[in-house]
Design a protein around this nucleic acid. Structure first.
Lengths: 160, 160
DNA sequence: CTCCTAGAGTTGACGTGACAACTGTAGCGC
DNA sequence: GCGCTACAGTTGTCACGTCAACTCTAGGAG
């Protein structure tokens, strides 16, 4: 039995169903968030992260690190959110560079409202249809995958 | 114990890890597809679907149905792919409406090459790190979720 | 024939996400 | 101080995906 180079029909089917389920779920959650709180999933992520920082101003790099987003993605997102008056970029550097990022009042209340609502939507769409076995399997797979992709060669971090 | 309205920290963690894993996986697969075959995941999907139709021309609605995409998404994608000479829209209706969609020679060869390569990438990134238990759990969850979201009230399909 | 409705396909606007290139600041060696 | 490098943040470009609006065609009612 030579190693099969292609996926079996069953594997394709599983792959397809998995991708499909994921996309439907994401779309559903995003729609609800948009409808109920007027924000998107990406905006929600930023709002939550800033909300958890309480009063402390965050920097772009810090946000990028915390969200595991690319810097440019954060910058673009902040520009849009600044236009929508959800966040505030304060001038800190001497030149035109702005570094400190804060929630506006509108952003803060949006965050507080959305966290509860979005959480219960996640529960409704995701956790309620999830058996403990499935949860364990998905958790294990998630961490495997993150490790595998994030740190393909971890030899750099260990003291060698 | 009143029903908790918000997710537990563990649930948030699982949710976050899962989203993260998914995004990393998708990005990785898309990058490889782009690097090795010069096409994106969306283009791949269209190419495969048209490839499986062999010589038969497909219509936009048929493609949308088969891929479970919105019509407009298909139209936009076809426009991009037409510009890149991967597909061909043939005139069929009397007016300026184009209905028949075919692969170009370039599209056909791209499809044939990519199917093998992409399949083995999926195997490498997804199936190799997946135990049978995990596969079963993920499959079950996927179908549950698709059913739940796609057909929230299925009373229309059964002969009433 | 005209209006109405339904369906297929298209288009525009907008937010999202990735990548590359650019700007400005700071530390370092000369 | 000048150039080198590293780093932080920004910007442009492009592809993706959704929603709403639009066009064109066909079928039925008046």
């Amino acid at each position: 039995m030579a190693e099969p180079r292609t996926l079996s029909p069953e594997q394709w089917e599983l792959w397809h169903a998995w991708m499909q389920a994921h996309r439907l779920l994401q779309r559903e959650l995003d729609r609800d968030l948009q409808r109920d709180y007027g924000i998107s999933k990406a905006e929600f992520s930023v709002l939550v992260t800033l909300h958890e920082a309480r009063d402390r101003e965050m920097r772009v790099g810090e946000l990028a690190e915390s969200l595991d987003w690319e810097k440019s993605r954060v910058a673009h997102q902040l520009t849009r959110m600044e236009n929508r008056d959800l966040v505030d970029r304060t001038d800190r550097e001497s030149s035109g560079r702005r570094a400190g990022i804060r929630l506006t009042a509108k952003g803060r209340s949006a965050a507080q409202n959305a966290i509860v609502g979005h959480g219960s939507n996640i529960r409704r769409y995701f956790f309620e249809a999830l058996s403990p076995d499935q949860a364990a399997a998905i958790q294990a797979w998630s961490h495997q995958t993150i490790d595998r992709i994030e740190a393909p060669d971890s030899k750099l971090t260990s003291g060698g």
